[in-house]
Design a protein around this nucleic acid. Sequence first.
DNA 1: TTAATATATCGCAATTTATAGATATGTTTG
DNA 2: CAAACATATCTATAAATTGCGATATATTAA
Lengths: 100, 100
Amino acid sequence: MNLKQATEIGKCLSNQTRFQILEWLKEPEKNFPPHETLKHFNDGVCVTYIQEKAGLSQSTISTYLTNMEKCGLLISTRHGKWSYLKRNEETIKQFTDFLI
Amino acid sequence: MNLKQATEIGKCLSNQTRFQILEWLKEPEKNFPPHETLKHFNDGVCVTYIQEKAGLSQSTISTYLTNMEKCGLLISTRHGKWSYLKRNEETIKQFTDFLI
DNA sequence: TTAATATATCGCAATTTATAGATATGTTTG
DNA sequence: CAAACATATCTATAAATTGCGATATATTAA
């Protein structure tokens, strides 16, 4: 982790909705309904569920999630027409180590 | 630590200069010249030294430091006409615990 | 192949942030 | 008290971010 990447992560954490999404994704089973096709949360939560829970527009949430993936906070996995998002614990740990 | 406070901290960490200051303050002896009046860094580093090292205007740095103190990242101590800034390790720890 | 569904990207207006210069406040020193 | 110094605050402008609707792309279903 270097200063530039850490600052990119900081930018994602500077918005309450984005930060909240990261918190929700700590416990997908608790915060989101189960997926109909996948019977588990192994790859995280689909965009639509996150969008509905956040209450912002589809385009806004999609952009947020893309940014959060780019800076390393999230891992995105495609299954058919769905994208599933989960926390990238490794990068998050590197970020907190850098900060402390 | 709650979502609102964490996001305020995120805002401070969304700017490279502010993040850099926090990193510099990990090792004041290494990153700053010694103070003439105080022979130690117990209360941190004065505003002028931080401003000179950052290379931005006095007003900008003063605003940054004020914000960083307000959100809990820094602790400010006055000694006469100088303000000394140091990291608030307790809040930083609370922030990283909240994130992980 | 067409329609429906899920997600991504584009373009835009509104809001927020970045940063500086000017000025104000507070402290020390002559 | 006046001058000098350190820091804080105010005001203004440029730049970046927010968040949306429209549209594009990709995948599945009919």
